[in-house]
Design a protein around this nucleic acid. Structure first.
Lengths: 110, 110
DNA sequence: TTGCTTATTCGCAATATTGCGAATAAGCTG
DNA sequence: CAGCTTATTCGCAATATTGCGAATAAGCAA
């Protein structure tokens, strides 16, 4: 999969895409990337908070989910962009939590 | 990464793991897998609902996020276990939504 | 039935994430 | 300072997810 960090738009003429663009134009890809970056930061922070709340070291949490400390460290790096649902669930499971996913409508300009 | 569908526990003697097992024993891996299966079903359903609410076909949604209909179909399959945060975000973004992730404590026996 | 649209399934290449050791930094106590 | 624990970074192999076409099924209207 091509990294969607710098996504270019294919020159389509599909009506659906045009409609979508119309409602989408107000939010440039630039902003979208910022939002994603912030979301990743937040996930990293949540993992760290969860681990801290459980009073575990990175090595201890790593053992609980069957991996190594370097992996946990990577997950807690605010710049890491590879967070996966699978990994979040493994961590949640080890800490007696569950991962809830919600789709929330974005209101424009509010 | 070894598929965590049938996860076996390494024979460790780490104190932390022992402590964790103690609080974890009440929820066998069997149940955990069921929970994950249900969570995946729910994600598949949400994607389908979101797409339906936007009145899009699989092909149309696929074009919006730069992929093909077969991929969308796979995501909406209740038995699919490969959901990723990246893909959820792509779909959410195309439909003017954002993905919210929450860690929620599990209360036992309640 | 035909014709058309939509949805589903399969296989495999391409890409992304994870596993994991090693090296190094950072912090903390003596 | 030394010694220890914890955290971070790097590189690459192993595994998982995605891309995507092709074939087929399913639904619906004429």
């Amino acid at each position: 999969m091509p990294n969607n960090k710098a996504k270019t738009r294919k020159p389509t003429s599909d009506a659906v895409e045009i409609l979508h663009r119309r409602s989408y134009e107000g939010r440039p890809a630039r902003l979208k990337n910022l939002e994603e970056a912030r979301a990743n930061e937040e996930i990293a922070r949540k993992i760290q908070e969860l681990r801290a709340a459980a009073a575990l070291t990175q090595t201890q949490l790593a053992k609980l989910i069957g991996t190594t400390a370097s992996v946990i460290c990577r997950l807690e790096d605010a710049d890491y962009e590879g967070h996966s649902l699978a990994m979040l669930r493994r961590i949640a499971g080890a800490l007696n939590q569950r991962v809830e996913i919600r789709f929330i409508p974005i209101r424009r300009s509010a």
